[in-house]
Amino acid sequence: MASLLRGAAFITGAGSGIGQYTAYALASHGVRQLALCDIRPEVLEDTSSELRKRHGDDVQILNLEMDTSKEDSVNSALNDTIKTFSRLDIAVNNAGIGGTPKPTAESDFDDWQRVMSVNLHGVWLCQRAQIRQMLKQEPLLPPPRGGRGVIVNVASMLGLVASSPKTPACAYTASKHGVVGLTRTDGVTYASQGIRINAMCPGYVATPLLKSATASGVMAAEIAKVPQGRLGDMEEIADSIVYLVSPMSSFMTGATLAVDGGYTAQ
């Protein structure tokens, strides 16, 4: 059976959570060259070890320390990726932070800037470097199914709706709305040049942090609003990202895909 995916992939926030499971999913569907990026380089070894356990020497892995909020760090990581793999076919901009969940009147400007620098500025810096590279290369597969490259920006369902007044997150919500706007604009701008850009908008997902909050009752009322009545699995988000970077979604660009158990459909 032919593999669904091919080429070289670049994933930010790959040391844990959705980024880690995205690396596993991409490799499972045929990607054999993976640049794994995280601001904490030590956590990348867990992802790398699991990939080698599953795929052995068949997979080529490049671990990169990268701060998405720093232009030089982003450009250096992209340059190292191209030096190693010669091209970039799939990019998943997943790195992000939650910040302090407060309403605007009670928020601190430093926290606002920190969230924006990672969640929005960081995605823009990564996407700019990725687009610049993709514009230089020829497609691995011919159009219309193929193109110069595919980018997925991991936003949030809070990039589509407001956060609850009971769990206000003004900076996080604004940053994720910004990611959706960036995705739509660049998705349209570069569509004719063979680059597809879409946004993944996960709902409440069973990351270690959220499971802990649920156990303590902090988020229990919010999760009860999910029509499917549960947290999403990280594998479910990763599988949806596979769809967005695959030829199966070749007529999608500038789009948002909500994978949230029905939360934003209410």
Results as ranks from 00 to 15, higher is better:
50 E>L: 10
249 S>C: 09
174 A>Y: 00
162 A>Y: 00
149 G>Y: 10
230 R>F: 14
227 P>I: 05
243 Y>W: 09
156 S>V: 02
11 I>H: 04
132 R>I: 13
194 G>W: 00
232 G>A: 05
186 D>F: 01
116 M>F: 12
193 Q>T: 05
265 A>W: 05
225 K>T: 11
198 N>D: 04
8 A>D: 00
72 D>T: 15
133 Q>T: 07
105 A>R: 09
79 N>T: 15
97 I>T: 12
254 G>E: 08
90 I>S: 07
154 V>H: 10
242 V>G: 07
4 L>W: 00
129 A>G: 07
169 A>H: 02
59 V>L: 10
199 A>L: 06
210 L>I: 15
104 T>H: 06
59 V>F: 10
253 T>F: 01
259 V>E: 08
7 G>R: 10
201 C>E: 03
254 G>T: 02
245 V>Y: 01
3 S>I: 09
51 L>F: 09
173 T>G: 05
81 T>K: 06
169 A>R: 06
75 N>K: 15
15 G>M: 03
52 R>A: 13
36 L>P: 07
26 L>N: 04
135 L>R: 15
209 L>T: 12
142 P>Q: 12
164 S>I: 11
163 S>K: 08
163 S>T: 06
139 P>L: 10
185 T>E: 13
124 W>M: 13
118 V>I: 14
3 S>Q: 12
205 V>N: 05
144 P>N: 05
175 S>L: 06
125 L>E: 04
80 D>E: 13
61 I>G: 09
142 P>I: 00
116 M>I: 07
111 D>Y: 06
